[in-house]
């Protein structure tokens, strides 16, 4: 028998991996990827409650669908920004993008 806790734990672990990656990786693409990972972890949570929740329903799946759509849009825009940035500054290191500092 599967239980809610197993899926939630899996989601939490994936989320933390994604978070850590987003906070420490230096390549902007990988940072973006890590954010995607976090979104996937969230999706797993949503689906878990759609399946095992107190009132199981299809709504969780619909939400996940929306999240995936927005994530796709986000990746598209993010990568476009990355390309423009790279063209201008010739680097994809997140630490070089510090124009906003003092």
């Amino acid at each position: 028998m599967l239980s809610v806790e197993q899926f939630l734990t899996l989601g939490a672990i994936l989320f933390c991996i994604g978070l850590f990656g987003a906070l420490t990786k230096r390549n902007i693409i990988i940072v973006l990827v890590s954010v995607e990972l976090m979104l996937t972890a969230v999706n797993i949570n949503l689906l878990t409650f759609a399946r095992f929740g107190l009132t199981p329903s299809i709504n969780g799946q619909i939400f996940t669908l929306f999240v995936m759509t927005i994530a796709a849009a986000e990746v598209a825009v993010g990568l476009a920004i990355l390309i423009a940035l790279y063209r201008n500054r010739n680097t994809s290191d997140v630490r070089d993008q510090d124009l906003m500092k003092w």
Binding site: F66, T69, I70, A72, A73, A76, L79, A80, I81
Partner: peptide, 16 residues
């Protein structure tokens, strides 16, 4: 959401 997708698409093309 479909509008958002279109906007993101056009935006991405414009940016890149």
């Amino acid at each position: 959401v479909s509008v958002v997708l279109i906007v993101a698409l056009v935006g991405a093309i414009t940016l890149a």
